[in-house]
Design a protein around this nucleic acid. Structure first.
Lengths: 230, 230
DNA sequence: ATTTAACGGTGTAATTTTCACACCTTATAT
DNA sequence: ATATAAGGTGTGAAAATTACACCGTTAAAT
């Protein structure tokens, strides 16, 4: 049956769009490239996929090697395949994203020589990026922004315990618009998946706010019957 | 700067998920494969991308060669890259979808020898498909189902002039559930992008229904300010 | 001790959207 | 004429969304 069929080899890559939230600002993770092409440029963490690893596995490995971060549960969002997007030939790239807590992570420390360093950079003022990475960023950011309205992705960006004001600030940063405090709180609490803690905020020079946790269990229970939006 | 960098070659494919609506049923376009592997099996129309064509261009060409259909405005929905999804080596594939009017199209006629024939097949009773195409179908169908709620994709599946009952039947076919007639009509008409025609349905043995058109211009005007969901 | 800066926290009314629900009308075929 | 099959229509209840402003608490500064 399968005699004499040719075998195929492939070169393609993965690029990672990792969002974090710090000091009221939305940031993404960039590397400074150490190699040609685009040596010295900022770029999304990304590299060539190995022959024997699935896309999801490759995304984890590559992000780890370039930034030191691992086990992020990234998801694919789009594949970019313009003919000349890579100067060395035809390399399509699969975009993955994740949202994470910046402070909950160890320091950024590239394992591979391929990246000089990895840094968090505000999305409001991104530098020019290598390859078509600016386009990849825009595409991914747009999707995440839309997803915010029907998926609990914001909680991945906050510390485990957070105040409602922090949560609102994050929504405002992603959506880039002001929200009404009372309506925001009412709505969030009405979902029923936020767990109010006894603990309060510390170290602030004003009235300490209540802390909340996102209760993944309750969320799953509440929304189990709905069409899961990917 | 760019001296002596190696050049890369790649083999990857595109698979197309084309939906149509006929006789109250949702269908997809399948080809019967003429070559190994999976000779004689049903499969999604799909093939290898050429070195010098973008993904979007490749999708158009491949669909045309395998089915005779062209200019469909397909959109990418996901990339599939399990290590062993293709028996001949590492071939990742980019999934594209489109929704089209079955009757508005010319007959299906593969240009390439690669497909024996192309057929419309009800999604309710799909046969086993080649490669991981069943998984690709499920993934794409799920996305389209969700998209139906916030994108005017249904109109692509209907004739240019259609009745509200036809439109409702289509929604019911995609969502796989019954909808309330009065509420459905009220809601659809409230959007303001359906243009009521003077013309009526013909050739039916019961009271003829009014025909409507989807007014793309009005749609664009109405929704221009909203976040465009891709 | 008083003041100040900064955020915490709360309620109500109007409007819009969603949902549930049933009957008469019209065109055609017999 | 009558049987058939779908066309077409409205209302009230419930839920969700929006707009909107003030007092309270805390710690730091004076």
């Amino acid at each position: 049956m399968e005699e004499k069929l040719p075998t195929f080899e492939s070169i393609f890559s993965i690029d990672c769009l990792i969002f974090g939230f710090e000091a009221g600002e939305l940031k993404i993770l960039l590397i400074e490239r150490n190699e040609e092409p685009f040596g010295g440029w900022f770029a999304l963490p990304g590299y060539i996929v190995k022959e024997d690893e699935s896309l999801d596995d490759a995304a984890d490995r590559i992000l780890y090697e370039l930034t030191g971060l691992r086990d992020l549960q990234m998801k694919q969002f789009h594949t970019f395949g313009e003919v000349n997007r890579h100067p060395q030939g035809r390399v399509i790239t699969v975009g993955y994203y994740a949202l994470i807590r910046i402070n909950g992570q160890k320091e950024l420390r590239p394992i591979s020589q391929y990246a000089r360093k990895a840094v968090w950079h505000p999305v409001k003022s991104l530098p020019k990026l290598a390859f078509d990475h600016t386009e990849i960023f825009k595409n991914g950011f747009g999707k995440i922004r839309r997803r915010l309205n029907y998926q609990p992705i914001a909680f991945d960006l906050l510390p485990e315990k957070f105040t409602l004001t922090q949560l609102q600030g994050l929504y405002e940063a992603i959506l880039d618009k002001k929200l009404d405090k009372r309506n925001f709180r009412k709505k969030m609490l009405s979902y029923g998946f936020l767990k109010e803690l006894v603990e309060k905020q510390k170290g602030v020079s004003y009235r300490a706010a209540k802390l909340y946790k996102f209760d993944r269990r309750k969320y799953a229970k509440i929304f189990q019957n709905e069409l899961t939006a990917e």
